[in-house]
Computed example of a mutant assay.
Amino acid sequence: VELGEECDGDAAVCDNESCTLKDSPEVVCELDGGTVINSLADFDALRGCAVIILSFSFDPPVAPVLVIGNSMEIPTNFSLPLLQAFYGTLEISNDPGNVVEVLSFPSAWKVGSFRTEHSPEFSRLFVPKLQVLGTLLLTNQAAGPPCADASTPFDLTFPDLFFIGAFDVEECDGPRRVLMPSLLAQNSDLNFDRNANLEVVSQPKMSKIASRINSLSENPSLRLIDRSSQTFIESIGEFSDYSPEGLELLLCSLNAFQFNTKAVERCMTTDTPPCFLFGAGDDSDRCREATGIIKGKHVTVEAEKNTWGGLGDLADSLDLSGLFKG
């Protein structure tokens, strides 16, 4: 196992101070499901882990969950810089005394699930190399403290994420923008309800699964939903109570039949507030911007593929069906 932010999994290039090749079994940490991190010693025991695997059982039922408790000994910046893969669910305790403000896994490429329901201090999730995420759940569905700090809005940014399973953000006032520029597939509905600071949900390359845009209501700052590469969609739910200036819905690649039968009735300029729909071969500047900007420069789709040395072709041909087989 290679450890360090500069590692890429190839021992042949592990030749700098920031990347160390480790073959010790201690870097693969197997923990019991239901383990609670409730002291500085518990936290320190995880800092040498490159892989964390949580066990589970059916009799008695034990879920593969690692819980960050509410001990004052736990650092407010919960950082595991060596972690590359986490198999199971990481949960911030629902106890109102939880002090965690930041979750930071700078080397992680895979996380099973992350969830928090009542974490009033939580204000940042930093996983810049994440590629696969099972579930992201930020909610406050029961009476109690908020799920994040509303006074310091933050972005949920996943530059390299290409697959996510379930993704719900409900009654959570912390997130401001959800930015997933590389996402190809989301194996669940899009649900964002009652989030006071949420402005943008951007998944411009999401095209491999016809998942629903299910529920987006009572997000008073929401102004943009970008799924400009989605060609098929299962259904589109109702939008309500978004930004007073209006909501832009970018479905620039959606097939014309579904655009006319599913999208048009859900998003109209006559709505209050207005909803601006772009798609079905729309050649407007807005769709050209959405589908042809890389690092601030207008380019063609073909130029985008060339920019990445042919990786654009690879992404277009990528078959993700194996991810959903039992």
Rank of each mutant, 00 (worst) to 15 (best):
P60M: 04
L83M: 08
C267T: 02
G48A: 09
A210S: 14
F239K: 08
T291S: 07
C275F: 03
A185V: 07
G309Q: 08
K129R: 14
P128E: 06
P75W: 13
E171G: 08
L31P: 00
P244T: 01
D160A: 05
D23I: 01
I294A: 09
A150I: 01
Q131T: 01
E121D: 15
E5W: 10
V301Y: 04
S284H: 15
K129Y: 00
L161D: 03
A148D: 10
E304T: 09
L40S: 13
A45K: 14
D285I: 09
T35R: 13
N214P: 02
C14I: 00
P153N: 09
S211P: 00
S235K: 13
L130P: 05
R286A: 12
V1I: 12
N191T: 13
S113H: 15
N255F: 06
P96S: 09
S284A: 10
L156D: 07
S253D: 08
L40D: 09
G281Q: 01
K205G: 05
C252Q: 04
S57G: 14
E17R: 10
L80Y: 09
L137H: 11
P64W: 10
Q230E: 02
C49W: 03
D313Q: 14
G33Y: 13
H298E: 15
F163L: 04
G48D: 11
E170H: 11
E218N: 15
C19A: 10
L249W: 05
E91P: 03
I294D: 00
G309C: 08
R194N: 11
Q84R: 06
E117N: 15
A290F: 06
E2S: 03
I68V: 15
V264F: 05
D42M: 12
N260C: 01
R286G: 07
L318T: 12
S235M: 02
F86Y: 12
N98D: 03
F78L: 03
P120N: 07
G34C: 03
Q186H: 01
I52T: 04
E17H: 01
R266M: 14
S284R: 10
Q84D: 02
P96D: 12
F167E: 11
T76N: 03
I52N: 02
I92F: 07
P175G: 09
D241L: 05
N98T: 11
K110C: 00
G88H: 01
E234P: 05
D283F: 07
S215N: 15
P204N: 05
R124F: 02
L247N: 07
L249G: 02
V200D: 04
C29S: 12
C29R: 14
K305L: 03
R288T: 09
G174C: 11
V100D: 07
L224M: 15
L133H: 09
L277G: 04
F276Y: 15
F192C: 09
G296Y: 13
L216R: 03
C14K: 07
V127W: 05
F167Y: 14
G310A: 10
D226R: 00
L222M: 15
A315M: 13
T135P: 02
F324T: 11
I164E: 01
R227Y: 06
D283N: 15
N38M: 08
R176H: 12
G296F: 05
F86E: 02
T269D: 12
A12V: 00
D42K: 05
P146V: 02
S18N: 14
E5P: 03
R176Q: 14
P145I: 01
T307D: 00
